[in-house]
């Protein structure tokens, strides 16, 4: 759940706010491994730090710009620090 009952989410959100990331929370349109993790009672979030990127998973000419990729590393440095220090 994305509320105050999940301290990891609160830490994640606070770090994202600090980075000024605009988040849009949704239900995933497909299926991922997260469902198995959630089934055994572990809260899980699906997140890939790729904005300003056309959705090309499973498509021809799948690509990612190096800038977005490198910025994603900066984002994870902050997010991982936040959730691992809860």
């Amino acid at each position: 759940k994305l509320d105050s009952t999940n301290p990891f989410w609160e830490a994640f959100k606070a770090a994202a706010d600090e980075l000024k990331l605009k988040l849009d929370c949704r239900i995933f349109p497909g299926g991922t491994d997260s469902r198995y993790v959630r089934q055994v009672g572990i809260p899980a979030l699906g997140f890939s730090p790729m904005n300003d990127t056309p959705v090309l998973l499973h498509d021809h000419d799948e690509f990612l710009s190096a800038d977005i990729f490198l910025k994603g590393i900066d984002i994870y440095v902050k997010l991982l620090t936040a959730v691992a220090n809860v």
Partner: peptide
């Protein structure tokens, strides 16, 4: 707590 993939956003 777990993180896994999301999806790109245009």
């Amino acid at each position: 707590f777990a993180l896994d993939e999301g999806i790109a956003s245009a």
